[in-house]
């Protein structure tokens, strides 16, 4: 049962990732693209966690944590760049 649930959720997340990709390509504004990237990294954390459940190991936890931290930092850096045109003042 769990195997099937993991496969179904993986399909759902892949559809979600494609929708994010569509928004990333479509735009129309830069903020939309940042938002799409932000959602995309959260969805990829979900996919990695799911792969960890599937393989039955906790090894992927560190990768997921790293993506979470890097994703947040890059989102805020992009926003800061758009706001001020400069990262370090």
């Amino acid at each position: 049962m769990l195997t099937w649930a993991v496969i179904i959720v993986a399909i759902l997340i892949c559809i979600a990732l494609f929708l994010n990709l569509w928004r990333l390509v479509q735009g129309p504004s830069l903020q939309d693209r940042i938002l799409a990237l932000d959602t995309m990294y959260i969805n990829s954390i979900a996919l990695i966690i799911l792969y960890g459940i599937h393989m039955g190991t906790g090894l992927y936890f560190e990768a997921a944590l790293l993506i979470a931290m890097l994703g947040f930092v890059s989102t805020s850096a992009l926003c800061k760049y758009l706001l001020r045109g400069d990262l370090i003042e």
Binding site: I8, V9, L17
Partner: peptide, 23 residues
């Protein structure tokens, strides 16, 4: 196992809804 599967699917559905909203 059923409970875990249910929680997983609910989580997946919410992730998908978030992305549907984005589009």
């Amino acid at each position: 196992e059923g409970l875990i599967a249910l929680v997983l699917i609910i989580g997946g559905v919410f992730l998908l809804i978030g992305s549907i909203g984005l589009v």
